Simulated assay, not measured.
Amino acid sequence: MAELRARVSDWRAAGLTVGLVPTMGALHAGHLQLVRRAFEDCDRVVVSIFVNPLQFDRPGDLASYPRDEAADREKLVTAGVQVLYGPLVEEMYPEHFSTGVMVAALSEGLCGAHRPGHFGGVATVVSKLLLQCLPDRAYFGEKDFQQLRVIERVTRDLDIPATIVPVETVREPDGLAMSSRNRLLTDQQRRAAPKLFAVLTEMAVQLADGTTAAEPVLEAGRKSLSAAGFERVEYLELRDSNLLRPLERADRPSRLFAAAWLGAVRLIDNLPVIDRQPEGRGD
């Protein structure tokens, strides 16, 4: 951490701007899009790789999370990243570590309802990374949209001097949102996985007029996912884009959110319904 802060301090003394891309490794094209966006805005880019144990509610999920440090480093060097920051767990959470960051309301429901403590772990680690690096901007993908809103609220409420920049979800040619977990899918599951995006897309079209009741559309979507081979639909909901409150119809800026299981792999995705006004932050 001291070396990172010294490097960033030198950049700032030279009048350079700094972007941070926090990741948990197993990098794919979605992560590299965050890096490219950071280079568009900033003079120097830091990428952190840290598999954060605080945001895993199941030990097996933490143990199975894909890791490929050598390949990650090669991709970042090729992309021109100036600093790869890879702290150890004992550096991030030293003995007797006892402080956490919690965000009410935005952390509830959706993934928060099914992964106890997850967003507390996210808010805590991102707060630490932002304070360790003190970037001008930090970049997060919209695939984890609830996480994005939580992080925006953390930086606002705690007066952390960094701008949070959302970056649109990067997808495979068949529509599947890129994720480190996709590599855990079997061939059969991978063929079924794009149905998640397809169902969200169909539902967004049906709800776009702002008057159609959401629940019948959501129920049909759940049945379509089950028919496609998803063993369990954890949630499929229409929510306000800013405060993530449940909606009965898309009569304001809104998004569809989904989490569903193919075997042991949990996939998430979200899609905006055509908005009648721009999305703001999670205020």
Rank of each mutant, 00 (worst) to 15 (best):
F145W: 07
G175F: 13
R255Y: 10
S180G: 08
G117H: 09
A259N: 06
P87D: 12
L207I: 03
R67S: 11
A63Y: 10
V77E: 15
R232M: 00
D72I: 00
L76Y: 11
L218H: 08
P194Q: 06
R245S: 11
Q55S: 08
L267D: 11
R73H: 12
M203C: 10
W11H: 06
F56E: 04
P272R: 01
E168K: 04
R7W: 15
G263Y: 14
V170Y: 09
R36Q: 14
Q277D: 13
R44L: 05
A208I: 00
P66T: 03
S254F: 14
R67T: 08
R181D: 12
V21D: 12
P278V: 05
V81K: 06
D159V: 00
R232Q: 14
A113G: 09
D240L: 00
A198I: 00
P253D: 08
L134V: 09
A260L: 03
R266I: 08
L4Y: 13
R281P: 13
P161D: 13
S179N: 07
K223E: 15
Q147N: 05
T201V: 00
L247P: 13
G80Y: 15
R137G: 05
E69G: 00
R281E: 15
G221K: 02
G109I: 03
G282S: 15
L184Q: 15
V150P: 11
W261Y: 15
L148R: 02
A258C: 15
V265W: 13
R232K: 14
R58V: 08
K223M: 05
G221T: 04
G117P: 04
C133Q: 01
E40V: 02
E234A: 00
E91K: 00
D43T: 00
A259K: 04
P253Q: 03
R190N: 09
A63M: 04
L207K: 02
D57G: 14
R73L: 12
S254T: 01
H31C: 07
C133D: 09
E234R: 03
W261G: 00
I164R: 04
L27F: 13
G109D: 10
R181G: 10
V125Q: 07
L84T: 05
R252S: 12
P59M: 04
T211K: 14
H118A: 01
F257M: 10
L76F: 11
G25K: 03
P53H: 09
F97P: 03
T17Q: 06
V81N: 11
S226C: 00
P253R: 01
G80R: 03
G175P: 10
E172P: 03
K195W: 12
A228H: 12
L20P: 13
V47M: 07
D43R: 01
G80I: 02
G30W: 12
Q55Y: 13
A138T: 07
